[in-house]
Design a protein around this nucleic acid. Sequence first.
DNA 1: GAACACGGCTAACGTCGTTAGCCATATGAC
DNA 2: GTCATATGGCTAACGACGTTAGCCGTGTTC
Lengths: 173, 173
Amino acid sequence: MADRTADIVAAARELLDTEGVPAVTMRRIAEKLGIRAPSLYKHLPDKGHVETALQTQCLTELAVALETVEADHPGDLLALALAYRRFAVGNPHLYRITRVIHRDALPEGVEYRAAMPLLRAVGGNMDVARAVWAFAHGMVVLELDDRFPPGADLDTAWRIGCEAFARTVTPGG
Amino acid sequence: MADRTADIVAAARELLDTEGVPAVTMRRIAEKLGIRAPSLYKHLPDKGHVETALQTQCLTELAVALETVEADHPGDLLALALAYRRFAVGNPHLYRITRVIHRDALPEGVEYRAAMPLLRAVGGNMDVARAVWAFAHGMVVLELDDRFPPGADLDTAWRIGCEAFARTVTPGG
DNA sequence: GAACACGGCTAACGTCGTTAGCCATATGAC
DNA sequence: GTCATATGGCTAACGACGTTAGCCGTGTTC
């Protein structure tokens, strides 16, 4: 009797987390629920709806993770960046699924919320925030996509980037 | 009588550039050559071979673009970064297709060559080079994937990032 | 002239997202 | 209590995808 749509998204999430993006098919989702694929369309219009729901989960959980770190280490850019990395590496498939955002279908403010802790950490400067975000996103996708050579010292690269941007925010310190 | 494999890759490249990733199917490639899809397998083992060839083209052309800028503006990190961006925005589908690299199938040294100009521009420091690469890659994929809000001042974000890393390389200047 | 490699072809398989249309059950109105 | 309707399953099927099996004409080579 509960909202079947939530069940569908939950099944998709489990497939995504345990088997990766290619496993998230309408037939596999249905199988997990003990029904057939066409029956899913009684509850949602298309697969894009499932993807949007997963993107919402990703952004929300990322926001929570960043807000938690922010509460413990206010203004600490490196701590925030490491939390960003930890989330992405801990949820690689989920992170990847937000590559092309269904912006119009996303709940209002979800994207904004995930961006706020970073913006606050750089003193509210939007341009710096975008640069730092790009750095963090770049580090994460390169790591997830195995683009760095084996044995690359990613911790150091993260530290160097964060320090460079921290100097931008507070030139003196 | 010419190498048919090259024709196949050229057809794939044209489809990629003009219609994007989803248009690059074995049937569409064959259609462009006036043959049927199964005939393609007389010349290559699978679609991955085509993708690898396109990735090689991407990395090589990117390397050439960066080397050209390097020759004109040696040591200029911002100029290099802007060239990186120009290449990606000018070849968005090609750039995107290098997300998951077929490293073992790529010609030896291709990846290395594309990375060298950047490494030289940061004085040979591998860790800094990785951080800068991540920043540039992040900026590019966020732009290509429409992740920045409309109207975001990306020029400024690029400049801020490059200046931050330039300060890392030469703390005094 | 025969053997063979090359490079086309059709038919087909199993996957995908999705649609059409059928049917059992549960619910609500009278 | 009966009947209408909405709900939520189902099967069959379509058109795409990558790929395989197997057939056949042509050109080259001994």
